[in-house]
């Protein structure tokens, strides 16, 4: 829909991007010299120690934060324009549901704001609630759902806008391991079905390696990319691949990258 004219092959193009926050105790360099091109249909994970700027990078792509220098294009246009074109869906770390709205009415909130017709809202919410396995819960309220279900509602809400790009900031961070495995599988399947481009922030190495086509390892102070690790497992992989030598090898490389980031921190 909002396909860029000049770059059919990149959804996000970031070059030499830096960001400084000015705080009460001076400038904080949150991102420094980030280069990253993301092509359509990729699943990119950002991994790195706490405070290395993963959320900040995601927020720059979403135009929730303004970068200080460098360049960024989302769908070939500025992040601001991309946001106004509703080019992406953003899933926050917490479900961020409205307690006074039912599950369905939470999902259609962005559609109400965009002025989508009532029939279309109904159809899309039904479709995407089915996609996240929440059919039958349309008229429940958030407090009646478990944490994992709430997070799935928030994913359905982001999908409802039908963006080509999905930005997810530790969406499963607060969940237990079993629920998380389950949701990882569902997310993988969803990605396979819809072919969307995903940028996914996580702290978990297995999660990153399992889901991604590329893992971006970041280091803190200032936030930099220390390694870019391709991991091309077959599209219909299951959780079992996490025991295979190929998987463990990539996981090992991610861990090494994280360590390198830390030693950088210690000098």
């Amino acid at each position: 829909m909002n396909r860029p004219a000049q770059s059919g092959s990149t959804v996000v193009r970031i070059s030499d991007l830096s960001l400084e926050f000015s705080t009460d105790d001076g400038l904080v360099q949150a991102l420094a010299g980030i280069d990253l091109d993301i092509t359509p249909g990729e699943f990119i994970s950002l991994i790195g120690p706490s405070g290395c700027g993963k959320t900040t990078l995601l927020r720059v792509i979403a135009d929730l934060e303004a970068h200080t220098s460098g360049e960024i294009l989302v769908n070939g246009v500025s992040p601001d324009e991309a946001r106004q074109n509703r080019a992406y869906g953003y899933v926050f770390q917490a479900p961020a549901l409205y307690p006074w709205r039912t599950v369905r009415r939470n999902v259609i909130l962005p559609l109400e704001i965009m002025g989508v017709s009532r029939d279309e809202r109904e159809a899309r919410s039904t479709r995407y609630l089915e996609l996240v396995n929440l059919t039958g819960f349309e008229n429940k309220y958030p407090w009646q759902l478990s944490g994992g279900m709430q997070q799935r509602v928030s994913i359905a809400r982001a999908l409802c806008v039908e963006p080509e790009l999905l930005l997810m900031d530790e969406p499963f961070g607060a969940l237990d391991e079993i629920t998380r495995d389950h949701l990882n599988q569902q997310l993988l399947e969803l990605w396979r079905k819809t072919g969307k481009t995903v940028v996914f922030v996580t702290h978990s190495i297995p999660e990153a390696v399992f889901l991604s086509t590329r893992v971006i390892v970041m280091s803190p102070r200032p936030g930099q990319v220390v390694d870019v690790i391709p991991c091309d497992f077959s599209k219909d992989r299951t959780l079992d691949i996490r025991e295979t030598p190929e998987f463990l090898e990539i996981a090992h490389r991610v861990r090494e990258g994280l360590k390198a980031g830390h030693s950088y921190d210690d000098d």
């Binding site: 927020r59 979403a62 135009d63 929730l64 946001r83 106004q84 509703r86 992406y88 869906g89 953003y90 926050f92 961020a96 909130l109 962005p110 704001i113 965009m114 806008v161």
Partner: peptide, 9 residues
């Protein structure tokens, strides 16, 4: 929640 509203423009 305000940020979320901004993402919906």
């Amino acid at each position: 929640l305000i940020d979320q509203m901004h993402t919906y423009s």
